[in-house]
Each structure stands twice: as C-alpha cells, then as structure tokens.
C-alpha cells in the first residue's frame, strides 16, 4: 500500500475472532474523518469479517495485504 498514510495501526495477531474486528471498530471510532487505520490479523476469518463490517458501516476498504505468511494488514478509511 505505497503512498497511503496510515494514521493508526494495531497488530492484532494472537487475537481470536472477533478480536481483530473489535480492534478495527475501536480504531475507526477513535479516528478522525479522512484517516486511514489498519489492523494486522492472523485470523483467517478476518479477511471476510472486517471487509463485511466496513461495507455495513459504509466506510472504505482501502486494501488488504499479506504481511507475513498467515498475517494480513487490512486498511480502512473513515470517510464519513
């Protein structure tokens, strides 16, 4: 995710479902409109779960990238 400034990131590896999603919700809540926040999750389910929440909450899924094997960084923009 070159060129995208992440305001806050939380490493939720080692946290179980729904922990990483809860972390994303907390980060977005504490962010300012326009900020991009990220969560790194080692939980496979997060790759479906967090985007589903982002869509429901009508935020923007900026992207997902593999950090290491089995760990994904999920980026969300608080666009409203």
């Amino acid at each position: 995710m070159d060129g995208i400034k992440i305001t806050k990131e939380s490493d939720a590896r080692g946290s179980f479902c729904p922990g990483p999603l809860m972390e994303m919700i907390r980060l977005v809540r504490s962010a300012k409109v326009g900020d991009v926040v990220a969560v790194i999750s080692g939980d496979e389910g997060s790759k479906k779960d967090i985007p589903a929440w982002i869509q429901k909450a009508r935020y923007e899924l900026v992207g997902m990238e593999e950090v290491t094997a089995g760990a994904t960084r999920i980026l969300c923009r608080k666009n409203h």
Binding site: P18, L21, I25, A52
Partner: peptide, 11 residues
C-alpha cells in the same frame, strides 16, 4: 458472546 459481538458489529 461471540455471536452477540458479530451481531453488534453488524449494527
């Protein structure tokens, strides 16, 4: 508690 969390997240 896990189902409640998911449902709460999905508003």
């Amino acid at each position: 508690s896990i189902i409640a969390s998911g449902a709460a997240a999905m508003q």
